[in-house]
Amino acid sequence: MDALLIILVAVAALILFAVFRNMRMQKHLTTLTEEQFKEGYRKAQLIDVREPKEFDRGHILGSRNIPLSQMKQRMGEVRKDQPVYLYCQRGSRSMKAANLLRKNGYEGLHQLKGGFSKWTGKIKVKKKGY
């Protein structure tokens, strides 16, 4: 019985931590629908945080690729004086990238709801060179 209580308390603590962390992140990151995203991304820095192979298979027209795995090293490429529109495949990596940017003084952070997998707008596919 004591072990079950300990497990339940641990699970509850993990759930509360996840909810608190998500609520805190929502203060600094705006999740936008595709229509809202389309309204503002041309006046912002549009960054695809997926890996290069994913980017090459298709990306939102006008975006540049700064993979989450390289964000710390390449953060200087992102301007602090302009809004930042982020996306990944489904949304988890863009949230992590936004958290990293926020911790380094960036504001005006936005992400695409549902990520690239839900995008219906124009895309570009990198041609393979043979």
Rank of each mutant, 00 (worst) to 15 (best):
128 K>S: 14
52 P>M: 08
95 M>G: 11
10 A>F: 07
33 T>F: 13
94 S>G: 07
91 G>Y: 00
9 V>T: 11
85 Y>W: 11
80 K>I: 08
93 R>I: 02
123 I>T: 15
46 L>P: 07
28 H>F: 15
39 E>T: 13
32 L>I: 09
51 E>V: 11
112 L>S: 03
26 Q>N: 15
74 R>G: 01
4 L>W: 03
110 H>A: 12
76 G>C: 04
94 S>W: 07
19 V>S: 04
107 E>C: 03
126 K>Q: 15
128 K>E: 15
112 L>Q: 03
119 W>P: 13
81 D>L: 00
28 H>I: 14
129 G>C: 01
10 A>K: 00
17 F>N: 02
9 V>N: 00
30 T>K: 15
59 H>L: 12
5 L>F: 03
45 Q>L: 11
127 K>Q: 13
15 I>F: 10
65 N>K: 08
55 F>T: 10
66 I>H: 07
21 R>G: 00
126 K>R: 10
61 L>Y: 09
81 D>I: 02
46 L>T: 01
124 K>Y: 13
27 K>W: 06
72 K>S: 12
51 E>M: 13
72 K>C: 00
47 I>Y: 08
78 V>E: 09
76 G>D: 12
57 R>N: 14
94 S>M: 03
106 Y>V: 09
80 K>G: 07
29 L>M: 10
20 F>I: 12
117 S>M: 14
25 M>Y: 06
35 E>Y: 08
69 S>P: 02
10 A>I: 11
7 I>D: 00
65 N>C: 15
111 Q>C: 06
107 E>A: 14
61 L>M: 14
97 A>Q: 05
75 M>C: 10
51 E>R: 03
22 N>D: 12
21 R>K: 09
121 G>K: 07
101 L>G: 07
55 F>V: 10
107 E>T: 15
35 E>D: 04
12 A>I: 07
106 Y>H: 08
55 F>R: 06
18 A>E: 14
128 K>L: 11
8 L>C: 05
